[in-house]
C-alpha cells in the first residue's frame, strides 16, 4: 500500500503513477479536499482509495483501475470512463459517467442532473436518486436507479436500458416504459450484485428505453426537408 497525500505531493504525483505500466500495489489518497482531476487517466489495473471529498472530473477516462472515493464527488465524475470500476460512497454532482464507454460506475448516494448523459456502454448503478435529464441521448449501456429520477429521464435515448425502482418525475422525448422480461431481471440482478447493492431486488424495478420514433427517419416528414 502506497499513500499519497495530494495536499503535499500534488495531483500529478498521483496521476502519473496511474499510467506507469510497471506500477504494482494499491494506492491510498489522503486529503483530497475537493481538488479537481484526482485519479484521472489511469491505464493500469490498480486499486485506488480516495479518503475524502473530490472536486471536478475525478476518475475521468479511467481504464482498468478500481477507484473508490470515500466521500462525495463534484461535477464530471468518471467522464468518458473506458473500463474498470469507480465507486463513490456519497453523492455525485452533475453529469457523472458522461460519454463513458465501459466499466462500472457506482454512486452509493444520489447523483445530480444529467447522470449518464450520452453514455456509450458504461454501466451506472445509483443507490439513491438521479437529477433531471439523466441518460440524455444515452446510446448503449445500463443505468440503474434505486431511488427516484428527476424530469425528462432518457430524453432522446438510443439503445441504453434504464432500470428505476422509485418514481420517475417525467420521461423525456422518445423514452417509454417497457416490459420487464426474464432477461432484464437477470441482467439487473447481475448489475446489482456487481455493484454490491444488496438491499434492492430486481423484481421491484421498472424498465425504460427508447420508443425508437425519434432516431429513425419518418418518411411522412420528408416534405419538411
Amino acid at each position: 500500500m502506497q499513500t499519497i497525500d495530494v495536499s503535499v505531493e500534488g495531483i500529478r504525483t498521483l496521476n502519473q503513477l496511474l499510467h506507469t505500466e510497471d506500477h504494482t500495489g494499491a494506492i491510498e489518497v489522503q486529503n483530497p479536499n475537493g481538488r479537481h482531476s484526482i485519479a484521472v487517466g489511469a491505464t493500469i489495473p490498480v486499486d485506488v482509495t480516495v479518503n475524502g471529498h473530490v472536486g471536478y472530473y475525478c476518475a475521468g477516462m479511467n481504464q482498468h483501475a478500481n477507484i473508490q472515493v470515500n466521500g462525495n464527488a463534484g461535477p464530471g465524475l468518471a467522464e468518458n470512463m473506458m473500463s474498470g470500476q469507480v465507486r463513490v460512497t456519497g453523492d455525485a454532482s452533475q453529469y457523472c459517467g458522461a460519454t463513458a464507454h465501459g466499466g462500472l460506475l457506482v454512486v452509493q448516494g444520489n447523483a445530480a442532473a444529467r447522470c449518464g448523459i450520452s453514455m456509450k456502454g458504461v454501466d451506472i448503478v445509483v443507490g439513491g436518486n438521479v437529477g433531471h435529464m439523466s441518460a440524455f441521448m444515452a446510446q448503449t449501456g445500463r443505468l440503474v436507479i434505486c431511488g427516484d429520477a428527476g424530469d425528462a429521464l432518457g430524453d432522446s435515448i438510443y439503445e441504453a436500458r434504464i432500470y428505476v425502482k422509485g418514481l420517475v418525475k417525467s420521461t423525456g422525448a422518445d423514452c417509454e416504459l417497457k416490459e420487464m422480461r426474464d432477461e432484464h431481471l437477470e441482467e439487473l440482478t447481475q448489475l446489482l450484485a456487481a455493484a454490491n447493492i444488496t438491499e434492492h431486488s430486481a423484481k421491484d424495478f421498472r424498465r425504460y428505453g427508447s420508443a425508437r420514433k425519434l432516431y429513425h427517419f419518418n418518411i411522412d416528414n420528408a416534405n419538411a426537408y
Binding site: N33, G34, R35, H53, G55, N72, G74, G90, D91
Partner: peptide, 19 residues
C-alpha cells in the same frame, strides 16, 4: 461553488453536505 472552499471551514469533514 465548490466543496474545496467549504473544506477550509472548521469541522467540514463532519458537515452535512448536499447539492
Amino acid at each position: 461553488s465548490e466543496y474545496r472552499a467549504i473544506a477550509q471551514l472548521p469541522g467540514a469533514k463532519n458537515a452535512r453536505i448536499w447539492e
